[in-house]
Design a protein around this nucleic acid. Structure first.
Length: 343
DNA sequence: AACTCGGGGCT
DNA sequence: AGCCCAGAGTT
């Protein structure tokens, strides 16, 4: 690539960033721990969603030592509703490694960051460039889209890394990486109508020039969501509810849930089920149906609140006071949609 | 290279 | 109703 192109990209992007960068909480610091937390939260999650979670997480756990010392239950509660829960468990493992093996000092290079669980090519590059000014790329979905369009290329994110390495400046590396992401987030939108007229790169954008904006980057093959039917039972004596912990692997791993039975059960089947647990039913109330979309599944849920008169320990369930439930037990947001019925 | 893993913002 | 989000780990 010629020097003129590189100079143009560097000055356009850095000038844009100096003028228009959003004032985001994690941009007020160079603390690698805080940058790390923000980058993990931002994986497949929009900025607007992350901000309140980030503020609360940093306020409760301001250092890597605090994170390493935290209990898993507390971490999941801080992550409740954010999704992709393995992110926070991997971060917990990594924090323990940093404290135990690195004397509490965050790795200073992308190569060493990459060794920590939950930190992949993008996140290692983001932390190293933003917190330590390492000359390394950070190719996320935004960068992929902006570069694909600007150069008129159809390449994977991995294939864009060497290209990024050519155009990276020798200083303000973190700003440069964030500038491309910023343009991807604010201007070079994935929708059919990006704001090309206000883009600092509009004069030399191949996709804009050749009318390829809509076709770049190449759309991934669209996924198939399978429908699954469930019956949710809130079994209560009005003071406590039966919960169960989901398995350590798979969807919503390690989270708590109300008894969730496969299929849409009839009221007779529910009565039989509750009796089979040894519980005496006082009344049963039908709750609103809900649907919940995951990446690959679509759950169609019917729900009942079942009031019983003889609460007792059960093998597969834990009886939890409702105040304790709200404070200390992490549920998927699909269960929290029913919060007005158990609070 | 293709799956899996949440939840929500935006159109 | 569908797309995609400051992706990573597993198969």
């Amino acid at each position: 690539m010629n020097k003129l192109t590189i100079d143009y990209l560097q000055s356009s992007l850095l000038d844009y960033y100096s003028s228009f960068a959003r004032d985001l909480p994690w941009r007020k610091t160079k603390d690698p721990y805080k940058i790390w937390v923000s980058e993990i939260m931002l994986q497949q999650t929009q900025v607007k969603t992350v901000i309140p979670y980030y503020e609360r997480f940093i306020s409760k756990l301001p250092t890597v030592l605090a994170l390493a010392s935290a209990h898993e239950d507390e971490l999941l509660k801080l992550w409740e509703g954010l999704g992709y829960y393995s992110r926070v468990l991997n971060m917990h493992k990594a924090a323990k490694m940093v404290v135990k093996e690195l004397n509490g000092m965050m790795p200073h290079t992308s190569k060493d960051l990459l060794k920590l669980p939950g930190i992949g090519l993008y996140t290692a590059g983001a932390i190293a460039s933003i917190a330590f000014e390492e000359r390394i790329s950070a190719v996320d979905g935004n960068v992929h889209r902006v570069l694909s369009r600007y150069f008129g290329l159809s390449l994977t994110k991995e294939a864009l890394v060497p290209l990024m390495y050519e155009i990276l400046p020798s200083k303000r590396i973190g700003d440069f990486n964030q500038a491309i992401m910023e343009i991807g987030a604010l201007i070079c939108l994935p929708s059919l109508n990006p704001n090309c007229q206000s883009c600092p790169l509009k004069d030399n954008c191949v996709a804009l020039d050749m009318n390829l904006i809509d076709s770049l980057p190449l759309k991934p093959k669209k996924l198939i969501r399978t429908k699954e039917l469930y019956t949710l039972l809130m079994i209560t004596d009005d003071a406590s509810y039966y919960l169960q912990k989901r398995p350590a692997k798979g969807l919503l791993a390690n989270l708590w849930e109300f008894p969730l039975l496969k299929g849409h059960l009839s009221q007779t089947e529910i009565i039989n089920y509750v009796q089979s647990l040894g519980l005496k039913m006082l009344k049963m109330m039908e709750l609103p149906n809900t649907s919940h979309a995951f990446t690959h599944k679509d759950w169609d849920i019917i729900a009942y609140k079942v009031t019983i008169i003889n609460p007792q320990p059960l093998n597969d369930f834990t009886l939890v006071f409702k105040d304790d439930l709200l404070k200390n037990y992490t549920l998927s947001s699909l269960f929290n949609k029913y919060q007005e019925y158990y609070r």
